[in-house]
Measured scan of single mutants.
Amino acid sequence: MEVRTIKVFTTVDNINLHTQVVDMSMTYGQQFGPTYLDGADVTKIKPHNSHEGKTFYVLPNDDTLRVEAFEYYHTTDPSFLGRYMSALNHTKKWKYPQVNGLTSIKWADNNCYLATALLTLQQIELKFNPPALQDAYYRARAGEAANFCALILAYCNKTVGELGDVRETMSYLFQHANLDSCKRVLNVVCKTCGQQQTTLKGVEAVMYMGTLSYEQFKKGVQIPCTCGKQATKYLVQQESPFVMMSAPPAQYELKHGTFTCASEYTGNYQCGHYKHITSKETLYCIDGALLTKSSEYKGPITDVFYKENSYTTTIK
């Protein structure tokens, strides 16, 4: 009895394709271990004539594949690729409408935090270190965002349907971005203890939790000093293409032309909904596939993004 075979390709990165001759009487799992086709788990399936010449994702289970996976995804987590594939199996079914010149995501599976993050990423200057993220990001900007969303979920250790947080998501993504040249110098002034300067680099240099107003941050924000008295913390120097200011959701007025974009969060910790506000020729609110415009805006804002380049204080 002759062994019926077909020729397929296996890959971990969709760049390096490895030619395989597979036995049609055995499952993919018996031949390769966990195997995925377009995100779908085909591990328990036997090869079919229609699979001839198709590319299958496999887990990096030998040295060659491990090197290829690390170079593309910059992670050695053995569960990463499987999590990416199972997320992709959902995100490829989502709709990605162009809204006001940006790629958004039609609401499904509690994905409003991903839509808000995706919209924000198209408006701030950011370059990702893992080629996987950078490639998928370019495709997302062009309207094909399924891979990018699935990668975000995998890097953030999230599953489809789980509630997510924009600030946490951005923080994970910033860790995989090139923020080497970003720098922030802060000064804390206390009447009792004097003053202390701190220099922050990388992710810490672009994120701040405690106030939404970048102007206020430049002037000074009140913080408790270690001595128990009130101290003032203010920005001395900022070198970065953008800054992200966050605070627990509270009524906040966004003035046209003073910011790049913002995240609105309605609801409580267990259950809520994100919308995205962007400042173009007027203010726009993007909620999944829905767009509304207004000249002014007041609502429960939790993150505001500002364009920056270089700032030095005039406070002496």
Rank of each mutant, 00 (worst) to 15 (best):
C225M: 01
L151Q: 01
M245A: 08
S295I: 07
T43D: 09
S86L: 11
G288C: 04
S213R: 10
S310H: 13
S294P: 08
L102A: 08
G164C: 01
V304A: 05
N111F: 05
A117D: 03
H256D: 07
Q31L: 13
T76Y: 08
L179S: 06
K7S: 13
M85V: 06
K293A: 12
L133A: 08
S104A: 10
M26W: 08
V160R: 02
Y234K: 11
R66D: 09
A262L: 01
Q195A: 13
K93N: 10
N16V: 11
V160T: 05
V185Q: 05
I45V: 13
K298Q: 14
K106W: 11
Q175W: 05
P241Q: 11
E239W: 04
D41C: 12
Y137K: 01
L186C: 10
T5I: 13
L235D: 01
A231I: 01
W107H: 07
H276G: 01
Q237M: 11
A205C: 01
T278N: 10
S50R: 12
C182G: 12
L17Y: 12
T211R: 00
Q230R: 10
A108G: 02
R139S: 12
K316Q: 15
D13A: 06
R4N: 13
F32A: 06
T169Q: 04
T292K: 11
M170C: 11
T91Y: 04
V8W: 07
L88M: 05
Y113L: 02
T19L: 10
L119G: 01
A150I: 01
E253S: 11
T103V: 14
A87N: 14
K95Y: 14
E52N: 12
V42L: 13
K95M: 09
K191F: 09
T11N: 02
K229V: 07
K93E: 11
F148H: 04
N268P: 15
N100I: 12
K275V: 13
N178H: 10
H256F: 12
G210F: 02
L254H: 03
L254C: 05
T43G: 10
Y208W: 11
G228P: 02
V42A: 11
K44F: 13
Q31W: 13
A231R: 02
V12R: 09
E68M: 06
S240M: 00
V8R: 02
S86T: 12
K95V: 15
H276S: 09
